[in-house]
């Protein structure tokens, strides 16, 4: 800002300049804030207008449905353990979908990330291609692939598994390539000088360095995939989501079952969340030590 050729500025000048700068900054900040608030308001009004029920009418009824479910579940409290046992296999299916898709996604994500990291890629010329593949895998919402596959393969866990695995491969691939960039290339060079193949270089030179980070990200992904597989069940791909949809569409009379499913899902998600965050802490901590 200050022009050095004009000689030293007086304190008053510096002060005046600082004040104008602050004022301008505040003005810009204010304008941004007003614009932002206006956008939020307009967005809210649009969403409210296009919704079936309005916000003002609905807000007082938010707890009606949970209250109904809970009161019916409360009346039939004795049946609850039975329901928990009944829906346990469905929960296992949901967990299996999540676990299998995480594993498959982990394998493909690892491959994609290794193929698209400079210095490790098998075919350096194709790095942009593999990056684009990852981007596209990541951009497709699971539900899109799942619905199309349900049409082709019929309902069941496999469409959901494939759909989640594709998305997981893309998402993990991106995170893994960030991890790879921080890995040392020296072991890879050493192995190369000893005549190791690409697979050996990656398996023995890179994976031991990045393994803990990979597993930590994969655990986090597993958590997310449980939620995703529950949602996909809701649109027809087996598991606890499907049972929830059935219990829900039946409406009153089977709310106790819905409550049991809610409970199972909540306990599972919270439990996996706690366990995986503990494991991730240990993994990353152990890697540093």
């Amino acid at each position: 800002m200050a022009d050095l050729t004009a000689g030293p500025m007086t304190t008053a000048e510096i002060r005046a300049e600082y004040d104008t700068m602050t004022r301008r900054k505040r003005l810009y900040g204010g304008i941004m804030l007003v614009l932002f608030v206006a956008m939020m308001m307009a967005g809210f009004r649009t969403a409210d207008g296009r919704n079936a029920g309005s916000f003002r009418d609905g807000i007082t009824h938010v707890f009606d449905y949970p209250a109904e479910v809970l009161s019916e579940a409360g009346e039939k409290l004795a049946l609850l353990p039975g329901h928990l046992v009944t829906f346990f296999p469905a929960l296992i299916e949901t967990l299996n979908i999540a676990a299998a898709s995480t594993l498959v996604g982990l394998v493909f994500g690892t491959l994609l990330s290794l193929l698209s990291t400079r210095g490790m890629a098998r075919w350096p010329a194709f790095i942009p291609l593999f990056r684009r593949i990852m981007d596209i895998c990541r951009a497709i919402p699971e539900i899109v692939i799942a619905l199309v596959l349900i049409f082709l393969l019929g309902g069941g866990p496999v469409p959901a598994m494939i759909a989640i695995a594709i998305h997981t491969a893309g998402a993990l691939g991106k995170l893994f390539s960030e991890v790879n960039e921080n890995a040392s290339l020296k072991p890879v060079e050493g192995l190369e000088s000893a005549g190791a193949s690409w697979g050996q270089r990656m398996w023995l030179g890179v994976i031991p360095q990045v393994g803990p980070n990979y597993v930590s990200y994969a655990l986090l992904r597993f958590e997310i995939n449980i939620r995703a597989s529950a949602i996909l069940g809701f649109v027809g791909a087996g598991g606890i989501g499907y049972e929830l949809k059935n219990a829900m569409s039946w409406g009153q009379g089977r709310y106790d079952e819905a409550a049991a499913i809610f409970l199972l899902l909540f306990i599972t998600i919270t439990l996996v969340d706690q366990i995986s965050s503990g494991m991730r802490d240990r993994l990353i901590h152990g890697a540093k030590a």
């Binding site: 969403a47 296009r50 079936a52 609905g58 938010v62 009606d64 449905y65």
Partner: peptide, 8 residues
């Protein structure tokens, strides 16, 4: 259940 279907 409370707000009906829609973006809101």
């Amino acid at each position: 259940r409370a707000f009906g279907p829609g973006p809101l």
